[in-house]
Amino acid sequence: KGWEHHDGALYDPETDRLNTFPLFRRTMRMAKLEDTVVPLVAPSEVVSKGWATPLAMVFIDGGHGLEPALTDYRLWAPRVMPGGILAIHDVFPDPKDGGRPPYEIYRMALASNLFEEEKAVKSLRLLRRLG
């Protein structure tokens, strides 16, 4: 609450936080991806500790604070396999359009020379991991 981009429709009064998981599940059902996409709902620090499998796609759509965005990037970008996709949501080059941290991690990924931009769809950036 109180955040500039707070969406009351996603607010869960029981937890006093935003809850996008029902929307995610509906989207996966509509896209017929429920048998393909395996959601893991936990903080990045928790899930990444035991993760060893290279990933064909990582979709970062997390917190817009600098620390949460950097944590997601640092923990998950290295796990994208060569040829795989790193997708970052809410990338706004113009600061008046949205928060800066997703844009900053997008710039970090490009500056690493490990990723190149594949496609931009509205605020979503798709980066391919170079081999």
Rank of each mutant, 00 (worst) to 15 (best):
I88D: 00
R74M: 11
K122R: 11
D61G: 04
T53A: 11
R26E: 12
V58Q: 05
K119W: 10
L110V: 00
P68G: 05
V41A: 04
D97P: 01
E117V: 07
P43G: 13
E118R: 12
P95D: 08
R25D: 14
A42L: 15
L126K: 04
K119F: 13
A42S: 15
V121P: 07
A42F: 14
E116Y: 08
M30C: 14
I105H: 01
A31G: 09
G98Y: 00
T20M: 13
M30K: 15
T15D: 13
R74P: 09
T71L: 12
D16I: 10
Y11I: 05
L66Y: 14
Y11L: 04
T20S: 12
L10M: 11
T15W: 07
T15A: 07
D94K: 15
P93V: 06
R74H: 13
K122I: 04
D94E: 13
A111Y: 02
S44G: 15
G62M: 01
P68M: 02
T27W: 06
P93T: 10
E67R: 15
T27E: 12
S44A: 13
L66E: 14
T53H: 11
G50Y: 09
G65E: 06
L10F: 09
D12G: 02
R100G: 13
V41F: 11
S112M: 01
H89T: 08
L23C: 10
F92L: 07
G65S: 09
V80G: 01
V91R: 02
K49Y: 10
E116P: 06
E118T: 09
S123M: 02
V91D: 03
V37E: 09
R125D: 01
P22G: 04
P93G: 05
A111W: 06
Y73I: 14
G84P: 03
E34S: 14
L70Y: 10
V41N: 12
S123K: 02
P39E: 09
V41P: 04
S112W: 06
M57E: 11
P102W: 02
I105T: 04
L66H: 12
R17D: 09
L114P: 03
G98N: 00
G98K: 02
R26C: 07
R79M: 10
K49Q: 15
G83L: 02
L23I: 15
G50N: 06
M57P: 01
T27M: 09
D90M: 02
F24M: 13
P102V: 04
K96I: 14
W51A: 08
K119R: 13
L33A: 09
R74V: 13
D61K: 04
K122P: 00
L10Y: 10
A120L: 08
Y73N: 03
E104W: 14
